[in-house]
Design a binder for these strands. Structure first.
Lengths: 229, 229
DNA sequence: GCATTATAGTGTTGCTATTACACTATGTCA
DNA sequence: TGACATAGTGTAATAGCAACACTATAATGC
């Protein structure tokens, strides 16, 4: 049942840049398109916004449908509205970026229409549409924001070692950090709960495990505290 | 000539939060709506995005048409997609925020359809749609961003005094700043060109005028320099 | 023209935060 | 039990930040 409008309209899509951290590299979740345009090419998960769902809902729905990822930190990134981003028609895309621990869930099985896989952010294949550009913007945002918001924890398992956390920050920021200074700073913030557990199955002295304490963070934030580096 | 689509679609609008600085207060530019919905109410300037213009172009066009403002710093803010933001139909709004020196241009004359005026940001009338929310988000962004990007200069005349610049920052940030420390810091950045001119028509010793040096800023930025406070 | 007023302009010091840096401790494995 | 791999820990020098008050200059009014 077709709908009629007085003027031609732009369609609205959402596209999601899902970051994960694994194997000591920052990864991004891509899907392989089954349909034209760009059939066979890799692309960011995403799709058209339904008329009865919010943008956030659309982003979560597309992620669930196309990749199986459900539980994640999700934040709007930017809205891309170049005239020729989609060869079919005028499409405005509201881009989101998301952070997730890849070990925490299984990717959706491949279907006829789509297949999902992780790629290291510095080794992504050519992407459909303007998705390479969107990815670049998302990376810049992540690198900028991770310095003054405790986002890094979203990419790690619930329990992690201080060295693991440091490696993550080194990977995202692209610079080595001093071990003693890093630990001093992080611990001084009192955002971490020290657990009575150590990592398992390592061929050397095991490191103590820590947990991010969301409630402490919220309490501190209300008192004007600012996370930094 | 109506257009037909398979599914109902969201319409796309742009809305602009235009900040100005005058009379020692931060101001926002509003228009009074002539048409339903919200006829007579004040609202952010904005309107529907044409199918053959980018989002940025649409924002600039609406500003020109509705307010007469043409030359300004304009940046995308956030995209609002709640289901009921517009009582007529589903409308997704890409919001922009803009900075301008109000003294630099004249507001567009009132027409049957619209009338533009400045309001102090802490004394705006009730706004149409979700525009009060959009304004709040824009203010938060401005307050956050002004600390690490030299945005303040966009709100001032080309030539300004150091005290004027300090007052602006105090107004936006809502905190008093130390005069000597402020001057030291700003001058140490070497972003300002010191002019051989002083302010005119003041009933006391006249202050020296300075000018923001955009090219110096770009040069420094490329070398990893970061504006702060 | 002199006193008043209003703002411009200017340095130093103590404190805090940041950086740079190297060794001992502990567990695993062969 | 020795070799190994990583955990875990403190200090000193430096740089950046915050706090603070007086003199200089132009205009105005008497």
């Amino acid at each position: 049942m077709p709908y009629t409008y007085e003027y031609p309209r732009a369609a609205v899509t959402v596209d999601c840049v899902v970051f994960g951290y694994d194997a000591a590299a920052l990864q991004v979740l891509l899907i392989q398109r089954g349909l034209a345009p760009f059939a066979g090419a890799w692309a960011l998960p995403g799709g058209f916004v339904h008329v009865d769902e919010t943008l956030d809902d659309a982003a979560r729905r597309e992620l669930r449908e196309e990749t199986g990822v459900t539980d994640l930190y999700l934040e709007q990134l930017y809205t891309f509205g170049a005239l020729d981003r989609d060869p079919r028609e005028r499409v405005v895309s509201v881009a989101y970026y998301a952070l997730v621990d890849p070990a925490h869930f299984a990717l959706a099985a491949a279907t006829d229409a789509t297949r999902a896989a992780w790629f290291a952010v510095d080794a992504v294949p050519p992407l459909a549409f303007d998705h390479a550009h969107i990815l670049a913007v998302a990376l810049a945002r992540l690198r900028g924001k991770v310095r003054y918001q405790p986002l890094g924890f979203e990419l790690l398992p619930e329990k992690f070692t201080l060295t693991g956390l440091q490696r993550l920050y080194e990977t995202i920021l692209g610079t080595p950090l001093d071990k003693r200074n890093f630990r001093k700073k992080i611990l001084a913030m009192e955002l971490l709960r020290e657990l009575d557990e150590v990592e398992q199955d390592v061929p050397h002295r095991a490191a103590r495990l820590y947990q991010f304490d969301e409630s402490k963070y919220r309490a501190l934030t209300e008192r004007g505290f600012n996370f930094e580096l």
